[in-house]
């Protein structure tokens, strides 16, 4: 099959379009929060999430959460192939309900933290992290 210049342009255009589709089809932040809370509405205060605005390397993105009074904190990454990241369960020996770790992010997306409080209520917070894989500094 011979490709004319017009065909090539069309294929190129289609490829660009399809490469954008995954970023549109990511699970919505609210749906993910609902999954963790079991349908309950989450308050927007009571939990802090610290993540960099821009992460040059998506392989290790440092994040911290702080949720005073929480029994468990779930971290989610809405744009990853598997949105779950980790769940921290705090025990009696914990000095504070905060933790720091390093996570993987597939691309620019929202990182979500959902805290389950001791009284059974939930609090959630999300932050967008820009990921520049390849480290061009973009």
């Amino acid at each position: 099959m011979q490709f004319t210049r017009r065909d090539t342009m069309a294929i190129g255009g289609a490829a660009v379009l399809t490469s954008f589709v995954p970023s549109l089809s990511v699970a919505s932040t609210n749906d993910l929060i609902m999954e963790v809370t079991g349908g309950a509405t989450a308050a927007s205060s009571g939990i802090d999430l610290t993540a960099p605005e821009i992460a040059e390397n998506g392989n290790t993105v440092p994040i911290s959460v702080d949720a005073p009074g929480a029994v468990a904190v779930t971290i989610l990454a809405a744009g990853n192939p598997l949105p779950g990241v980790a769940t921290f369960n705090f025990g009696d020996g914990a000095g504070s309900q905060s933790a720091t770790t390093r996570i993987r992010l597939a691309g620019t997306q929202d990182v979500i933290a959902v805290a389950k409080m001791a009284d059974g209520s939930f609090a959630a917070v999300s932050q967008t992290v820009k990921v520049t894989i390849g480290g061009c500094g973009g």
Partner: peptide
């Protein structure tokens, strides 16, 4: 103190601070 469930999105050489 803590009990963490970890999924594949945790980076290589898992690090925790608490």
């Amino acid at each position: 103190v803590v009990d963490v469930e970890m999924l594949p999105a945790i980076s290589t050489n898992p690090y925790f601070q608490f």
